[in-house]
Design a protein around this nucleic acid. Structure first.
Lengths: 215, 215
DNA sequence: ACGACTTTGTGCACGGCTTCACAATCACAA
DNA sequence: TTGTGATTGTGAAGCCGTGCACAAAGTCGT
């Protein structure tokens, strides 16, 4: 029946894809999109698109499709895109520096407001316009810049301590690139992006396809 | 019953976590691990650990647990860790450079053997020990370095073309960081790591928790 | 006004993953 | 040898997500 009841996690994960697909269509001047068109652009099933959108309480028009601008507005609202959520990047190694300088973050409404590192040479400077602070200052940084999201790009050995510090400072959303399991309270949303694990999964399939070819 | 029949995808995704957990325990001199201990270290349920391991055909000993070294060997074998799979990084922007220089890749058995970029100033040079080639050379690069995995770190606009080139060169595994939907043949394994989408999912939960607090 | 055509919204069945619960199995001590 | 205690392996139930298939509902031409 729809309405803003409860949106399944799997659906939430697809909403950004739909939004991006709509942005690709917008310049064409097209006014409406069908679920099938949206499905093709997002790489998913048309029925899934319709079911996902029905959770938003956003209705299309039967026989026509979805009004493009209205749909963009509704999805954006569901995702909370009106607000911009400042991010702090913790750890300025290879990956951390790249993330701090990553334009995709700011573009999507998540400006990197500050960074934290243990390197005394970096503390007090700015890297790509992002001010760098000491770990001990994390609490103050979070409140001053109204940080909503912490990105952990430290070595695995430091990751849990950083996560604890972020949680202690009141941060409720964490994105971790550290190759380790992090423990956070239930009310903190944690998303782990584990590059080594992703590669090992690919390695598994490579390995298996070779084995199958031999048999 | 087990045996090397078919391993569920969800299980495959957890095997690297178990392996990492085992490596953490190893230095302690401990000889066996229980499913519960392994579960704690991996952040999953103990029953799930047991069921996952049963798919490998690797048996523990009832009343005792799993023999640590043997289990490491079995998981490593299932993941195909004996082999090392050379990687080519496509696109040397912020993220691409960081990935090319990322020690975690080599450590996990996925050395970055080559990189590809359109920038004429970079082609022919080496960046952090990684030789840089032109996109047109991709086919030759793949065969010469026996590339098994392609990492796409280009802007979204170039990603599909790069993916097509990788597929054309015979690469069967692709990891994409480009914020776009890629289409590849069924026999090519594609894993998309979408940072903007991940942040938007976090944003959704932040947004919702605020809304719920207001009501 | 009406029929043909299009596309949505959704009931339903199916498959995969998770979790519980417990019998089967092993080590070890008496 | 037998009993006790521990831990595995797995049947079964439940849950979530997917996708089909179709009625409901709108547009548009005549």
């Amino acid at each position: 029946m729809a309405g803003s009841g409860h949106i399944p996690e799997a659906t939430v994960a697809r909403l950004p894809l739909y939004l991006r697909a709509l942005d690709e269509v917008a310049p064409s001047g097209q006014v409406t999109v069908s679920s099938e068109e949206l499905a093709d652009l997002s790489g998913v099933n048309a029925a899934k698109v319709r079911k996902d959108l029905s959770y938003l309480g956003t209705y299309g028009t039967r026989g026509v499709g979805y009004e493009l601008d209205y749909l963009k507005f509704e999805i954006g609202r569901a995702l909370g895109l009106a607000h911009t959520w400042p991010v702090v990047v913790c750890g300025l190694g290879n990956l951390g520096r790249a993330l701090a300088n990553h334009t995709g973050f700011t573009d999507a409404g998540f400006p990197v407001a500050a960074a934290v590192d243990t390197d005394l040479d970096k503390i007090g400077t700015t890297i790509d316009g992002v001010p760098v602070f000491a770990p001990a200052e994390l609490g103050a940084v979070v409140s001053e810049f109204e940080i909503a999201i912490g990105v952990i790009a430290t070595p695995a050995s430091a990751a849990q301590a950083v996560a604890d510090a972020l949680v202690g400072a009141g941060v409720k959303s964490i994105m971790s690139f550290a190759p380790t399991v992090l423990v956070v309270p239930d009310d903190v949303e944690l998303r782990a992006v584990d590059l080594a694990t992703e590669l090992q999964i690919l390695g598994f399939h490579l390995h298996r396809s070779i084995e199958n070819a031999e048999t």
